[in-house]
Nucleic acid binder design. Structure first.
Lengths: 154, 154
DNA sequence: TCCTTGTTGCGAAGACTGTGCAACTAGGTA
DNA sequence: TACCTAGTTGCACAGTCTTCGCAACAAGGA
């Protein structure tokens, strides 16, 4: 399946169970496979941001033969569905999470520490960017860099 | 050379010519080599964000034997000096620019369009990040993702 | 049960970045 | 100026992360 989809926002509430995702998947011509079910279960069970590699390891605990490339392909499908998003945290691999769990990050460019940020912090920026530049901010996709308090002190 | 340096801010005005960078370099035990001079010339001549690959191509126009790995190593040294910074633009390779040329920008994650942003837009975010998370946002090392007006319309 | 077509495992390739090493050279010293 | 030391370079290769081609497999409708 590779049909173009409406943006996730246009479909109201995000699915909150694996079966709801599968319903969405089938509605788009996709299929409910064991590897997808396990991948989704893991994503629903965690709040953490996981790399493709970490997801593969977790999936393989329940079903050893699932290949890393299958993880990548499933993640791509789930992103097209709007169920999953990815985040670039600077150096290192991309991390994935349920779209419903997404949030912004600050990363210390000295020690690498990650700090999660509420969307509220971006409200003023988003409003001004929209008004002055016509730009709609998505603060979740790429982390913001700077210095944490510890590194600044040293 | 690989000495630890004070943060760039502690050294006052950033160098504004290649020779000033070289003075800084020598003060840290580094050497003024042709490949570094050319690399710096190119960085001083452009406002754009260039990838290591693009920089290598540009350097090689003036001195064909400079190797890509030399570019990477020189960029790393110049970053340690605080002369150069890099920015993660999400997908694709890291881009480099003079620290003095760095500016915040918005990037459309659909069409890739870059919109430069005044630091002023980030003031509120920076203040809240500092107060609530102890995090000092680097206003010159920020790429915010989202959608430009054109892509949002389509 | 059969058929169609979406999915998968596997291997390999690709993009980007870093590293080990021997040869070279910048720049200080005698 | 000649010499020496240690920083730098070219090159090849390795490593990490991600994507792709292809034949075999299987989900789910007919």
């Amino acid at each position: 399946m590779s049909k173009q989809l409406a943006p996730p926002d246009a479909r109201g509430e995000p699915p909150s169970t694996v079966d709801e995702v599968f319903a969405l998947l089938r509605a788009q011509g996709g299929r409910a496979t064991p590897s997808r079910r396990i991948l989704l279960e893991i994503l629903f069970e965690t709040d953490r941001h996981l790399t493709a590699e970490e997801l593969a390891t977790a999936v393989q605990k329940r079903s050893p033969d699932v290949h890393l490339s299958t993880i990548y392909r499933n993640l791509e499908e789930l992103q097209k569905l709007g169920v999953v998003t990815h985040t670039h945290l600077g150096h290192g691999p991309v991390t994935y999470q349920l779209a419903a769990h997404a949030h912004a990050h600050f990363i210390c460019e000295q020690c690498g520490k990650r700090v999660e940020a509420k969307d509220e912090l971006f409200r003023d920026l988003a409003r001004k960017a929209k008004r002055e530049l016509g730009f709609t901010v998505d603060p979740h996709h790429v982390a913001i860099f700077g210095r944490c308090s510890d590194c600044l002190a040293s």
